[in-house]
Design a protein around this nucleic acid. Structure first.
Lengths: 186, 186
DNA sequence: AAATTCTTTCTGTTTTTACTGAAGCAAGCG
DNA sequence: CGCTTGCTTCAGTAAAAACAGAAAGAATTT
């Protein structure tokens, strides 16, 4: 029984496609991803074509994109020449990879661009000081976020999970003036 | 001298517009936002029209959207009937508000949808167990992230900044006997 | 190496989204 | 009031993105 025949699968895939498009990801791409996520075995392109009623070419492009994000990978099924595909099922891993790739594609170039702009702004005497300052602030801000991500991405998953569960409580480890090591657990 | 006459401003606005569209935000909307961010005084719609060469109606819609995100607000300039607009300049505040709004619009409905799906999946005997499990896992995962956000958003800004600067080092509070990749190095 | 099977790339079409200009509406002013 | 000014909504148009089908390109088999 094909996966898509289950109403729950159908709905999941449709919603995931919607979500994607709200975040700047092509709807077909996120649908393919959703389908693979719910599959417990590697699928080949033709199966995806049938499940989602997409053109073969479209599926090919979509798979490439997903592989670019590192959340889908090709595998081989013994005795079958066709490429098969599986999605990352560890959701932390998935999130971190998507984040990494979007950072690489969008954030890093933005930081570079802002750095360049900040340099130019420095040289431009006619530029109002507040503009210079706001560009610099944005540059710094995005840089800080980016640096934070770089650090967090390297943490072992159990640590991430623990931190997340801790939520706002981590705040007690940091006090505006105090020492960072002041761990007053309750 | 109009803001947009400065090359740095021009470039900033264009790049910000690009960025926006990659994240599912209308290019005009993010351009308007960029312009207001760089302005040190409230602008009225007509000024934005001229600066960005957009239709008046378009600017009106864009401003409404930005107000919806809570990152632009209307002000009144004494002796002028027209509405004027200023952008939030505190970047933390900006980020948190955008996050809050996107959560409200996209994440919360998704969680609700997943909850509904999970219920249905429970009842559907024909549904393969691994599908049930993966839907449940996704539901839980997004719920956890969402809960984390709710906690973090409430923290005072200096605390946020401190935590961010601390980066991966917060890990030592949660896994005292650090593991691979853990930020053991000072 | 010819034929088959599978994948990717390319081009034209469709669909969606963004945008404009006009019309409608509201508020303040003469 | 009725006129002016400013804002929003709406409908048609333009631009952009997504998509399908055809053609080309690899790889494998015979």
């Amino acid at each position: 029984m094909p996966l898509m025949d289950h109403p729950a699968v159908q709905k999941f895939v449709l919603h995931w496609g919607e979500m994607g498009s709200q975040w700047g990801v092509n709807r077909s791409v996120s649908q393919i991803h959703a389908l693979l996520y719910l599959s417990d075995r590697p699928l080949h392109a033709e199966e995806i074509v049938e499940a989602l009623s997409l053109a073969r070419s479209n599926v090919s492009t979509g798979l490439k994109e997903l592989q670019g994000y590192g959340i889908v990978r090709r595998t081989h099924v013994p005795g079958d020449r066709r490429d098969h595909f599986v999605a990352e099922t560890d959701l932390w891993e998935m999130l971190l990879r998507i984040a990494a790739e979007r950072k690489r594609r969008e954030i890093d170039p933005t930081i570079a661009h802002l750095a360049e702009l900040a340099r130019e702004a420095e040289a431009d005497g006619a530029l109002p000081p507040h503009v210079r300052q706001r560009i610099a602030r944005m540059h710094e801000f995005i840089g800080t976020l980016s640096g934070w991500y770089e650090q967090v991405r390297g943490l072992p998953k159990p640590t991430l999970v623990a931190l997340m569960k801790l939520g706002g409580k981590v705040a007690r480890f940091v006090s505006p003036f105090g020492r960072k090591g002041d761990a007053a657990a309750d």
